[in-house]
Write a protein that binds this DNA or RNA. Sequence first.
RNA 1: GCCGGUGUAGUUCAAUGGUAGAACAGAGGACUCAUAAGCCUCAAACAAUGGUCCGAUUCCAUUCACCGGCACCA
Length: 475
Amino acid sequence: MSKDKSFYITTTLPYVNAEPHIGFASEILQADVLARWKQEELGEGNVFFNTGTDEHGQKIFEAAIKVNEKVELYVEKYAQEFKKLKEALDLSNNLKFIRTTEEKHIKAAQELWVRCKNDIYEKEFEGLYCVGCERFLSQRDLVDGKCSVHQIEPQLLKEKNWFFKLSKYQEKLLKYLENSEVIIPDWRREEAINFVKEGLEDFSISRDKTRLSWGVSVPGDDTQVMYVWFDALTSYISTLGWPSEEGDFRKFWKEGHTLQVAGKDQVRFQSLMWQAMLMSAGIKNTDQVFYHGFINSGGQKMSKSLGNVISPYELIKKYGTDATRYLLLRHVHSTEDTDVTWERLDEWYNAGLANGLGNLVSRILTLSEKHLNQYSEINPIGKIYEALEDLNFQLAMDTIWLKIQNLDEKIAVLEPYKLIKDNPERAKKIIDELRTELILIARDLRIFMPSTSGMIHDAIVSNKKPENLFPRINA
RNA sequence: GCCGGUGUAGUUCAAUGGUAGAACAGAGGACUCAUAAGCCUCAAACAAUGGUCCGAUUCCAUUCACCGGCACCA
């Protein structure tokens, strides 16, 4: 990441048809660490950290009907569910939240449409329509050519839609993708380049209102609403106050470094469609999109039917907020898929937090409380965040845990608890050193585990051993 | 089928054209400040075949296995 004065980071906006998923929790935690890191580097006012909820579309409309609820209330409820994550995961205070049903967002989406007007045209959309579902089916909805839900053959139906000329942007997209910075990891960039080379087709960006009413109205066409993609992608700039070119939009999107965090299945949407839309509207492209892997459990996708779903709230309930942050940040691979099970989580927790960090705090603070006077605060310095430049969260944390290990080792070698009898001066000096090194570790932990960091710091400053930070979990 | 990725100790990962590192789990030991934690020691791996090379886990090819994407699902 470059040395820009300001930094913009956003997650993708989760679709609100289900409870928050652990994958999204992981995504927003990664974003949170980066946001906190940049806030320390650039100052809080120079970082814009965004998330939100994608609330339009057929599926949500149907889901609301299914539970017999007004769709406005339904999305409101889920938006709150997602907003709760902020506190539950102790996300940065400055986190912004955009809902695609907000007025300012709707206006922005419509404005973007108008700006893209030259690349938007009307065409017959042909699709397989299921009368049971009352919607067009995708390939995935089909089993042996029949609707997987209703077991009936869909009819070929045509309707007028608005299309976006994605095909026109092949060259420009390739040009954009030439820059090795725009996608992390690099092999996903290769993937994106391949998509483009295989040829891009224009895509439909609207739906007939008679079939789908829950969406943003197409400017100048009362019969159509925007297809969710067009609408949702706009949120990355509507949150900045666009279409106003001034203020946050200028500061962060135009003049700052922009980074989008997304799942690996998003390449086509974030790095191709969205970038083409920006090009069409004459807006600067995203500087970087970081694609993370997925979290599976027991070798399979998490799914309700398999009963292997691990929700972020369950994690928090069992391990606590900071421990959840630790588990998801240190043990989830940043770009590959990660397999997570309760057994493994327990092991990670005990090894890293109970036996590692928690125990170290106990032993040092016991020695300190017993043998030393108050701690006179120093200004801790320390930079361990090099690995974050490559968005390698695991490596960054490994560096901290290596320090923890070294401290444990130092205690074993120097044996200050023995030395205190024969050579108290020397022992005290050692304990004082340990204390200082521990406060440096706390400093390093600040962006990963903010409240733990604070607790360790406070314990040292008040020279008082804290309660067990991370009680051991016994199977 | 097409495109891409991956295959390293029991597990999860790392590095490297020339003795393959670590963490967790496992076995043993000496200690006691500490959350039966920590420290030390031990055991344990380069999917298969062929090629290039003085030399390959690393480069190339093939095979096998696994994963992802192949667009209007968000």
